[in-house]
Structure formats: structure tokens, C-alpha cells
Design a protein around this nucleic acid. Structure first.
Length: 203
DNA sequence: TAGGCCATCTGGTCCT
DNA sequence: AGGACCAGATGGCCTA
């Protein structure tokens, strides 16, 4: 199996940046899936140790970390504020570390991989949601919590528009002009929201 | 430098 | 039993 660092040169290829992953879910997700399948298959057919060594050479030194040890050892991936994924380089010495782990560690590693995949799917859903909430063109990437809160406020405002029976554009224009009566204690106040909506092209 | 945000690991719990 | 889900802990990165 190829080294995942060879498969994904995140620094070189902006296509794999997580920012905007919803538009390009294919390559990374497919590669990750295939790795996970390979890993599972190897675990089923071979001894845990050979399976582990296989994974060891491919998925950024999962064995390097002892349970309870600090996270994001140099072999882990992380995402910066710009949303790009960084994979730390793995030294050959670490890659050759002998596999001497009890079975529960093998299961723990497999669970970690599943958890990582689960978080990736959650994050891709967040990316998709970011595409559906109104943002300013120059605005920086919304955080997860801001995305959720803005989505809640957005849905509430859309509901108001529906109930009002007014033309959406004129409703928003009215809100921008006269201000909007804020219902509840929404973190995203509706003037923010209506200002964002005023950027939308209403057809 | 503190605070915000995030990814990852981990152990517990629930579900199939 | 194994996988999914969850929350706490931890450490890295970035920005004001």
C-alpha cells in the first residue's frame, strides 16, 4: 500500500483543502475509504500485528502514540485556521518501530480510525451547511458554532418571511432599512442576518 | 500571551 | 461483540 503522504500532498494541492470540501469530496474521501477498507480487510485476514504494520506504514504512524499520551504527535494530521489539512512527515525510524501491542491496542487504533472518519463526515456536513447560510463575500470562514447559530437564525427568518406572505426581497429590504424586531435571544442578531441576505441575488 | 477554534485520542454508553 | 455516538482532555495553530 502506498504511503498516504504520497497520495496526498496537501501543501501542494489546494484541491484537497478542507475549505470547500463539499465541492470536492471525492478524492480524499475515496482514498480514506479505501484505506479503511484495506485496514479492515488486513485485520480480518492476517494477524493483528501484520495488519498493524500495514497500517503503520500508511496512515501516519498510528502506533507511535501510547494511550493517554499527548495528541497530535508529529505523525498526525491537523487542520489549520485556513481549513487546510496538514499531515506531518513521518521519519523512517519511527516507521520501522517494531509492532508489539496487545490486541486491545489494535482495537483501540481501529476505533480511533473510525472516530476520525466519523468526524470527517460531520465536518463535511458542516461544509455543506456553510454553503447554505448567507455570508458576506469577504467574510472569513464561519466556525462550527457560528455556522449552527447562523443556520438557526436563517431558518427562523425564512419562516417569518413565509408567514408574512411578503415578497422575500422586499421583506429583507424592509428589515435592512427599518431594522428587524429581534425575537428571542438569538446570538446571531437579525440585523447581521438581514445584512447578509441583502447580498443575495433574488430572482 | 491569552483566548478561540479545531483535530485527535480515549473511555464510557448505547445500539444492532 | 463490535460499531456508533458522545463528551472530556489535550495540544497545535492562529489572531487580536
Amino acid at each position: 500500500m502506498e504511503d498516504i503522504n504520497m497520495l496526498f500532498d496537501y501543501d501542494q494541492d489546494p484541491e484537497f483543502a478542507f475549505w470547500g470540501q463539499a465541492e470536492h469530496p471525492g478524492p480524499f474521501q475515496a482514498q480514506l475509504d479505501s484505506f479503511l477498507v484495506d485496514y479492515s480487510a488486513a485485520s480480518g485476514q492476517l494477524s493483528p500485528w501484520s495488519a498493524l504494520q500495514d497500517a503503520q506504514l500508511t496512515f501516519t504512524d498510528l502506533n507511535a502514540q501510547s494511550p493517554g499520551a499527548g495528541v497530535c504527535a508529529e505523525a498526525d494530521s491537523s487542520t489549520g485556521a485556513d481549513g487546510t489539512v496538514r499531515l506531518c512527515a513521518e521519519s523512517p525510524r519511527r516507521a520501522r518501530r517494531p509492532a508489539a501491542h496487545p490486541p486491545h491496542k489494535v482495537q483501540r487504533h481501529a476505533a480511533n480510525i473510525r472516530e476520525r472518519k466519523r468526524m470527517l463526515s460531520i465536518n463535511s456536513a458542516f461544509e455543506e451547511l456553510r454553503c447554505h447560510v448567507p455570508t458576506f463575500p469577504y467574510e472569513k470562514r464561519l466556525s462550527k458554532i457560528d455556522t449552527l447559530r447562523l443556520a438557526i437564525a436563517y431558518i427562523a427568518l425564512l419562516r417569518e418571511i413565509l408567514l408574512s406572505g411578503c415578497d422575500p426581497k422586499s421583506y429583507v429590504d424592509e428589515c435592512v432599512k427599518n431594522g428587524y424586531k429581534d425575537h428571542g435571544d438569538a446570538v446571531w442578531n437579525t440585523s447581521d442576518l438581514t445584512a447578509r441576505l441583502s447580498w443575495i441575488k433574488w430572482d
